[in-house]
Amino acid sequence: MPLDAIPILAVPQGLHSDERSGNAPALLREIAEMLRRFLANGETSAIDLHALPLTPADLEWLREQLGGGEIAITLNAEGESSLNETACPGVWWVTHRNPNGAVDSEFIEVADVPDLVKAHHEDVVIGLDHLELLISDLSKQRAF
């Protein structure tokens, strides 16, 4: 049976959420403050957007205000995550999705690059091992 043959309408999430609550403008000031601290002493920080009473319209507004930057990073880890720089360098919009594509959590991060992007040294060691294995295989082949 095709899905649309089932006579139940799934009400879209965010129904009546097209109104802005008025909570978003304050966030711009908070982000500015975070940037000042970052410039002064390198302190990175983050805002959990799901912890705040924001409607989808608020988030949309905030996203528009912050604009799109030059870098957009996609992380494929148990669902897709996007880590996008906004038009304000150092301000990142981070969205984590689960394998079904639903948004799990959403953050604004103030940092050079979000922590998650950086390669961890333990993992670099594993990568190096792998590379050395490849190289030794290559030289073995040449010996023949």
Binding site: L75, A77, E78, S81, H96, D104, S105, F107, D115, L116, H120, E122, D123
Partner: peptide, 10 residues
């Protein structure tokens, strides 16, 4: 590692 960090963030 990143999957785990993402999980912990959520």
């Amino acid at each position: 590692r990143r999957t785990f960090m993402k999980y912990c963030a959520t």
